[in-house]
């Protein structure tokens, strides 16, 4: 982390638009069993943003290593690479006003091509890939664009109902300009029939919101004889203009 200024854009200090809690998944979703004991049951305290929510840290591009956004190589032995269908994921991080958001820290993690995570608590029988760690990160450029290279993750079974499978997915954590803009979500792949059978996807009430998490095959961005490309845009909360705010009468 550094205090370096990322762009010439004047920092914005407006409150974020209220979150549409009918669009996001509710806390209690019994089809996803773990949510049952982990969901708050009382009403949330709604609060227009104060400085504590509007502000947030800055992540400078200087924290990034050269291979941070290349999951094919960032864990592989020299001269080797991860096994699986090679893909590029690229996209635009916007806010609800349609503006590109610069300097967003994106962190991503995923299973390997066989659907197995590199984690002490992972129990799936699919083999580990010695050249695949499964984590990566990047920071959006001055216009809000990002890209990464990886292998397409496999679907995997998980203990919920007796026969639940996750569609192929990449987890994304987005850290925008304010702490209240913080978001974790998942990217799915266009055409995967498991999307519509997954109880975690199904926590999202609105079909359109699910489509919004589904990356589209992008043949123009595909690198011939190398890697297919998927485009995945992410929308973060918008914020108000501060023209008439933060000023007390008489001050």
């Amino acid at each position: 982390m550094s205090g370096a200024t990322l762009s010439n854009r004047k920092p914005e200090t407006g409150a974020f638009y209220q979150r549409d809690l009918d669009w996001h998944p509710p806390a209690y979703t019994p089809q996803y069993k773990t949510s049952v004991l982990r969901s708050p049951q009382k009403a949330l305290l709604s609060l227009d943003n104060t400085l504590s929510e509007i502000t947030g840290p800055v992540f400078g591009h200087n924290i990034l290593g050269e291979l941070d956004n290349d999951l094919i190589h960032n864990f592989a032995k020299a001269g080797e690479s991860a096994i699986g269908p090679r893909i590029i994921v690229h996209g635009h991080v916007l806010d609800e006003r349609g503006r590109g958001v610069d300097g967003v820290l994106l962190e991503f993690w995923q299973a390997n091509a066989g659907g197995r995570y590199r984690h002490r608590k992972e129990g799936y029988m699919a083999p580990l890939d010695p050249n695949f760690g499964g984590c990566g990160r990047t920071i959006t450029d001055e216009n809000g664009y990002y890209c990464l290279r990886t292998i397409q993750p496999g679907p995997y079974p998980w203990p919920n109902r007796a026969n639940d499978w996750r569609p192929a997915h990449i987890h994304f954590s987005a850290f925008g300009h304010g702490f209240a803009q913080r978001l974790i979500t998942q990217m799915y792949f266009e055409g995967d029939p498991l999307i519509w059978k997954c109880p975690i996807v199904d926590t999202i009430p609105d079909r359109e919101a699910i489509e919004g998490l589904t990356a589209v095959l992008d043949m123009e961005a595909t690198i011939p004889m190398d890697a297919r490309a998927y485009k995945f845009d992410i929308v973060l909360r918008g914020r108000r203009s501060t023209l008439f705010e933060n000023r007390r009468e008489g001050n």
Binding site: R19, D20, W23, H24, P25, Y32, S35, L94, D95, E96, R97, G98, W109, Y117, H119, K121, E122, H171, S173, A174, L183, I184, T185, Q186, I200, V201, T203, I204, D206, E208, A209, I210, G212, L213, I234, V235, L236, R237, G238
Partner: peptide
């Protein structure tokens, strides 16, 4: 206006 990307659980391997 665009809609914010819907949240999904961080899962067991965050």
């Amino acid at each position: 206006r665009l809609k914010e990307s819907a949240s999904q659980t961080a899962g067991p391997y965050v």
